[in-house]
Structure formats: C-alpha cells, structure tokens
Design a protein around this nucleic acid. Structure first.
Lengths: 169, 169
DNA sequence: CCTATCATGTAATCCGTTACATGATTAT
DNA sequence: ATAATCATGTAACGGATTACATGATAGG
C-alpha cells in the first residue's frame, strides 16, 4: 500500500463515491458532469487513473465485473471515509485565484471593447444555463448543490456587470 | 528550434517581457508578484523553465550576463511579438471555472457555519489587500492593471456576500 | 446499411509543483 | 558574528491533459 497525496480531484472522487455507495469510472464521469462539474470539471481520463491511485493507497476497494465490459467498480474503505471526513472538517486551504484568461488579455492590452463583448456573451450564455438548472432542480435537492449553484450564478452576475462596464466605458 | 504549446504561463512571460523590454527570471518573479500575480500567480521555478522553453521554440532570445551571477536575460524575438499579438487579438478561450476548494467542501457536506466563517475572514482580508493596492496606485497606472484589480475586488465582494448568507442562514 | 456519436478505456507527454541548494544581505 | 531572510537557480516527481483506440448504439 502506497502513499499518495490527496488532491482536490481525490476528494471529488471520494465524495461522489461516498454519495452513491459505489461507482465505475464512467459513473463518476456522469456524476461529475451533473454536479461539481459546474465549478470543478475533470477530464474523463482522470476518473480512470485517480480511483486506481486511491485504491493503491487504501482509500478505495476495486472489484471487477464478471463478463460483459468487465468494468471496475469502486467503493470507499474505512480509511477512505476517514480521509473524507477529515478533509471536510479541516479549515479550507488557500483561496482560489480568478485565473481568467480574458483578464490576462485585458491586462496585456487586448482591445477592450471586443474582448468585453465576447465575454459578455459567453457569461450570459453560462448564466442562462445555470438558471435553467436551478429552475429544474427537484424539490429535495441537497443544500450543497443548491448553494454551490447559487455561488456560480452570483459570480456570473458579477462578471456580466464587469464586462458591461468595460465594454461601455 | 522546437515546437512548444503556448499556455497562459507562456503569455504571462511574453507579455511581461514585452512590457519591460528584457528581463531575467528573477525580474519576472518580481513583476508577476506586483501585477498579474493578483489573479494569476506562478511558481518562481516556472519563471526559469518557461523562458527556456520559449527560447527553444524561437519566441525569446537568451543572453548570459558576463561575470557576477551570470544571469540569463531574455528578450522577445519577432516571432514572440507576433505570437503575443495574435493571442491578444484572438477571441478568448473558454471561461474560467470557480475551482474554489471551499465550494467543494460545501458541496460534500462540510459544516456550513464553520466553513462560511473561515471563508468570510479570508475574503475580507484579501479584499482589504486589494483595496490597499488600489489606494496606492500611482496616477498613470495603465487601464489593464486598474481594471483587473477592479474585477478582483468585485469578486471579493461577491464572495463575502455569499458566505455571509451561508453563515447566517 | 452506413455513418456518426456515445461509451469506455489505456498510453504517452508535459506542464507545474515540490524539493533541494547556495551565495548574498540584513537584522540583532 | 550569527541567524535569518532574500536572491537565484537546478533537478525530480507526478498529476493533468492529450492522443490514441475500439466496441456499441442510434439516426438517416
């Protein structure tokens, strides 16, 4: 059993498997795309390699389906559950940075009007998607989903106001 | 001369060298820390490796100081200037994701009150820093700096409002 | 039927982070 | 003087992205 560093990716995998009990990499892919993927997306290839890593380190068990596609199906071990709980209870790490490519362009002298117009449209589209998701949220959606989506929506509003001013100035 | 993919890191290096004419890795480190570093920070080691990469691909020239520390000093080539201009003119890539670790914790069931309190304090501190920078901005600061800082400040406000409600609900 | 897209997975590459180092200044 | 921090750089590692592959399903 080998030591690995637990990254945010690790906790996404652990957290999702915790929510659903067990999952194949493809299950994880779909789960990510309808949940945390809105603010923290992952490449599908990582949903194959990351569970392997976590299994090597004793956080997950792996069992292969007999016959058919012989999928690998993962579940939490006790160690995995503990790691997840410890992470949840820890004070959060450093704050995220904006890391917005468009801001880099703005900083390095791109045409403001053009840039702002393109950004405005992209953010409006994204806001519309988020709002559509919110409308269709079933009644008993967990608070975590609801709140993270809410955070996303607010940031979209902030971006829209920002780029509108940049475009208009 | 070797092909390399140009990443955001590449454009930070190209953009900064474009602004100052020429720079050593250590110059770049300081430049980043007082400019784009507020929303797009880089490890100092990358400011050694990235210019090498860019030089291998013909975007920069490298010359070594004689004597002393024999620092490497980089400057843009024509190809580098063109690449930077092309990037500036391109429509922006995909929008950034929030990728906020605290949101992951919220999503996966961390204690809302505790989490929100910690985040509130961290964001308040960061907002104060940004505002201090804004106060001390010299008169003729380029619009790019001013606007990107403004974007940062607004997002901090958004976060503060969000976490305040999460804490209060 | 044939083609496009979805489902599912592995392998290779490489950028970014972390660890390691050491000479020069500054502070006490 | 000595410790601490700044200045400056290299090397190793590993997580994340990209490329490569192929069987299944659905649409036209």
């Amino acid at each position: 059993m080998q030591d690995v560093r637990l990254t945010p990716t690790s906790y996404v995998v652990l957290g999702l498997i915790d929510q659903v009990g067990q999952a194949t990499p493809y299950d994880l892919k779909r789960l990510v795309s309808i949940s945390v993927g809105y603010f923290w997306s992952l490449q599908h290839a990582q949903l194959y390699s990351e569970p392997e890593r976590l299994t090597r380190a004793g956080y997950l068990t792996e069992e292969r389906e007999e016959g058919g596609r012989r999928r690998k199906r993962y579940a939490l071990t006790e160690r995995g559950r503990e790691a997840l709980a410890a992470w949840r209870a820890q004070p959060p790490d450093d704050l995220a940075e904006l890391r917005e490519p468009a801001l880099l362009k703005l900083f390095f002298g791109a045409d403001r009007k053009e840039l702002a117009t393109a950004q405005l449209e992209a953010h409006r589209r994204r806001l519309a998607e988020y709002e559509a998701v919110r409308e269709q949220m079933p009644p008993r959606t967990p608070e975590g989903s609801r709140l993270t989506l809410e955070a996303g929506i607010r940031h979209e509003h902030t971006w829209i106001a920002f780029w509108r001013e940049v475009a208009g100035g």
